[in-house]
Design a binder for these strands. Structure first.
Length: 841
RNA sequence: GCCGGGGUGGUGAAAUCGGAAAACACGAUGGAUUCAAAAUCCAUUGCUCGCAAGAGCUUGAGGGUUCGAGUCCCUCCCCCGGCACCA
């Protein structure tokens, strides 16, 4: 009988479901493992093969863990709020709820066809009111702690999606979803104070096992700079009280070279000093012009910096005590640091560019030790034509001359601190998270605005605040959520004074539901809590979380923030780690055939449905693991799929032949094949842990190639072990062969003993095999014989032979003799069990 | 510009404690089977020279360390990802 996956795969999927073997058991005595993959957005297009790669990989890990006797939680759910479904509703008038239901049914069907070992009893959906009740509850808690606030601010606005975007959602000045240019727009928005957690979000990265590049990406995104805030006094102010401008710098060691000061156009000091600025009109015009500039325009001016000198006022450099001029220039950003800088043109590229165009003095205060070592260097030859941004030795800095940058920083800071002119300061690039979307298909923000009492959170007993039905899904012309059009819903009573009040009509961004979903899997049906502390205590933290690299500064960062918040307020038991994910790994993207990105518009999307139909789910699974390194992007190749199918066909054929073999009396001797199997067990076991699935599969292939040459070379136990290590990759095939083998064996026994057929026990209830270390050890090794480091012969020898013996054997080789003719051995290098190298002249 | 990852056959790739470069697979070529094709099986397959035995060359380029370098060090080039006037 030929291998026909379509005939067997459905049967075993149902079998596993009936046996409930993939269900996680709360409070089981077995040690737990929580294995998580990012839950998908159920789009109308269905799963594509790229989605499957991480699912297959972590399914393999989960299956192995169960066989290693862990209580495994491997759940799945739906991150179903979001724009595509809403846009679909705008186009077709079909309610997003209905479209979502249809899509999730389809996604689930597709996943089931791949034989994933998810615990479906814990399925969740972010659009389910019993779920988003808790998403809203978290918002209310954030509000109560002052971490959610409403502010009018310029936001990134996509005029095509009619939606405000978080910084993280703007790619190259364009909308992440539709590619439309993003413009700035003043809008009242809900924001979450993620900046309060910036420090912990960096520091706690030391507690987790993430790939280094993920950590770096998060750190760079948060962008911590440690430095000093320094006060520069406005020297000739007509005001009686002293006025200061605060600057932030990481290079206080260069302060003696600060020859002017620059403030951002939005800086409030400008308004305050208005009367003293003699050229206020010009300055005002410049400010207006800057405001109108888009981010892109600002960036395009990097080389050509503009600014205006503020006439009539000057500041004192606190180090030199000299008066220096002030400029307003838009190369200084208001939202970073203090919105003002001290400019050190000799040691900062940007300041240098600006100083050159405005003819400002450039004073060298740091000399590079390295540069001066270069031949022909003299201090005078190095005029001030060059910027030096590195560290070095201080010059032109009075009593700090000769100090290294590092020491100088501390000394100068101490000195200025004593005069109350400097203090330590830390700044972050990270900005607060814009949490409002003027859209329909999202969680309503459970807030009410009372004319008297201001913004109030809905009482918790009124949650969930359900998303009302609307007829028209389009945002209003003013860019408000379609919810704003439902007068009856918007008008409500103030929870505090009972007076008239209005509901917030913005909804939450699509990241809201995924912030905390992994917590819900621990206790998916709880109505009292987002999850019970006991169950959180049992299952958390997530032991292994795999997801896309593209989520590093979005979902991953956001969810770490929300977890930390929930930990702070005690929703998460305090004995748990302040980090939700112990280990994070990432998968590479699957590209279309020829290496182009798969997309609907290019028409090169490959659906797992078709692959399964043609080759079977197991082939798809093994192929996706075999195609290349897991964390690397890789192009789909139909020929490669065929090659994997050939491998499974071979396993099928060989196994059936083996099963039908009338077993001779169990052999005593250990065959080479058996030894190879031990190595294969070791390799597969280790490679799964290291996510090296491609080489795990290739070792299985190597084994089957060897087996083909000696079908009888295996014992029954070996055959079972082989099926076990194959089973996470090709679960259906392995289960089929395993059951067939058991039936065949019991039939044989039945002739002599009772005819009772044992009750079916899944291969996934078996124990993961251990390899026999004694059998892996070889008695013989191949000794490599080199001459001057080049391989000239290889001879099989006994293990552990001495240098003397090896030399004797090597010198006996005709090939080596030829090479050594009339040559003198200068040196011999011997590496036990590896090689012998003769160095000749 | 800065940070991170990478560059190995016709292709996807193996091999990173410095010790056999190219495992496994795809493709290609030849053969067996077949009326024929598909499928399957067997053989060959880094490049150059050679009838062969064999020899030389080869991991982006160039240098270095070493008995020995894909692997370590220096300089440079290219590709991918991220950030980008962040003081």
């Amino acid at each position: 009988m030929d291998y026909n996956p379509n005939k067997i795969e459905k049967r075993w999927q149902k079998f596993w479901e009936r046996l409930e073997i993939f269900e996680a058991k709360d409070f089981s005595k077995k040690p737990k493992k929580y294995i998580l993959i990012e839950f998908p957005y159920p789009s109308g297009e269905g799963l594509h093969v790229g989605h499957c790669r991480p699912y297959i990989a972590l399914d393999i890990v989960s299956r192995k863990r169960r066989m290693e006797d862990f209580n495994v939680l491997f759940p799945m759910g739906w991150d179903a709020f979001g724009l595509p479904t809403e846009n679909y509703a705008i186009k077709t008038g079909i309610h997003p709820k209905i479209a979502t239901r249809k899509n999730t049914v389809n996604f689930k069907r597709q996943q089931k066809n791949l034989g994933f070992s998810f615990d479906w009893t814990r399925e969740i959906n972010t659009t389910d009111p019993s779920y988003y009740k808790w998403t809203q509850w978290i918002f209310v808690q954030l509000f109560k702690k002052g971490l959610a606030y409403k502010a009018k601010m310029p936001i990134n606005w996509c005029s095509s999606c009619k939606i405000g975007l978080a910084n993280e959602e703007v790619i190259d000045g364009r909308c992440e979803r539709c590619g439309e240019k993003v413009v700035k727009k003043e809008k009242e928005q809900w924001l979450l104070k993620i900046t309060d957690y910036a420090e912990r979000l960096i520091d706690d990265l030391e507690k987790v096992d993430y790939p280094e590049r993920v950590k770096t990406l998060e750190k760079d995104w948060i962008g911590r700079s440690k430095g000093y805030e320094i006060k520069f006094q406005v020297s000739n102010s007509k005001f009686k009280e002293k006025r200061f401008i605060n600057v932030f710098t990481t290079r206080i060691d260069t302060i003696f070279g600060a020859t002017y000061l620059v403030v951002a156009p939005e800086h409030t000091i400008l308004e305050k000093l208005k009367k003293e600025i003699e050229n206020w009109k010009t300055v005002e015009r410049y400010i207006e012009k800057s405001k109108r500039k888009t981010d892109k325009e600002r960036i395009s001016e990097i080389k050509n910096k503009t600014g205006i000198k503020l006439k009539g006022i000057r500041v004192l450099n606190p180090a030199t005590n000299k008066e220096i001029p002030i400029f307003v220039a838009d190369y200084v950003l208001m939202h970073y640091g203090t919105g003002a800088i001290m400019s050190v043109p000799c040691h900062d590229k940007r300041d240098f560019d600006f100083a050159k165009s405005y003819n400002l003095p450039i004073i060298k205060v740091i000399k590079s030790e390295e540069k001066e070592k270069r031949p022909g260097f003299t201090l005078s030859s190095e005029s001030y034509k060059e910027v030096y941004e590195g560290e070095g030795i201080l010059v032109n800095s009075k009593r700090f001359n000769g100090m290294k940058s590092e020491t100088a920083r501390e000394r100068i800071a101490d000195w200025l601190a004593k005069k109350k002119l400097a203090k330590k300061s830390v700044h972050y690039k990270l900005r607060d998270w814009i949490f409002s979307r003027q859209r329909y298909w999202g969680e309503p923000i459970p807030m009410v605005k009372c004319e008297k009492c201001g913004w109030l959170a809905l009482p918790e007993k009124e949650l969930p605040l359900k998303l009302p039905n609307v007829k028209e899904y389009k945002p209003t012309e003013k860019g408000e959520s379609p919810l704003a059009k439902i007068g009856k819903w918007v008008g409500t009573k103030c929870p505090k004074c009972d007076g008239p009040a209005k509901r917030e009509t913005d909804v939450m961004p699509n990241w809201a539901g995924s912030n905390w979903y992994y917590l819900r899997y621990c206790d998916p049906k709880n109505d009292e809590n987002l999850a019970s502390p006991k169950l959180l205590g049992y299952w958390m933290p997530v032991d292994w979380y795999n997801g896309g690299m593209e989520h590093t500064t979005l979902h991953l960062l956001y969810s770490r923030f929300i977890y930390k918040f929930l930990w702070d307020i005690g929703t998460i038991p305090k004995f748990l780690s302040p980090e939700p994910y112990k280990k994070r790994t990432s998968h590479g993207i699957i590209l279309g055939e020829g290496g182009i990105k798969m997309s609907k518009s290019k028409g090169n999307v490959i659906s797992p449905d078709n692959v399964i139909k043609q080759y079977g789910a197991d082939t798809l699974r093994v192929y996706e693991m075999f195609m290349g390194p897991f964390n690397q992007s890789i192009a789909w190749d139909t020929k490669g799929v065929k090659g994997v199918r050939r491998f499974l066909d071979k396993v099928w054929k060989l196994s059936n032949q083996f099963i039908n073999l009338s077993q001779s009396k169990s052999q005593q001797s250990v065959s080479d094949l058996e030894k190879l199997l031990q190595k294969t067990i070791k390799k597969v076991s280790e490679d799964i842990e290291a996510l090296k699935f491609n080489t795990a599969v290739s070792s299985l292939m190597e084994f089957s190639n060897a087996w083909q040459k000696n079908i009888k070379g295996l014992k029954k136990k070996n055959f079972k072990d082989f099926l076990k290590i194959l089973s996470p990759f090709a679960p259906h095939l392995a289960e089929e062969l395993y059951q067939k083998f058991k039936v065949q064996s019991s039939k044989r026994k039945a002739t002599t003993k009772s005819s009772k057929v044992s009750k079916l026990k899944s291969i996934f209830k078996e124990k993961w095999p251990k390899y026999d270390i004694k059998l892996i050890k070889e008695e013989k090794i191949v000794l490599i014989i080199e001459i001057n480091g080049k391989v000239r012969d290889k001879i099989k020898v006994k293990k552990e032979i001495s240098e003397e013996e090896a030399k004797k054997i090597a010198l006996n080789s005709p090939k080596i003799k030829k090479w050594l003719q009339a040559k003198k051995i200068k040196k011999t290098i011997f590496l036990k069990n590896k090689l012998i190298n003769f160095v000749i002249i």
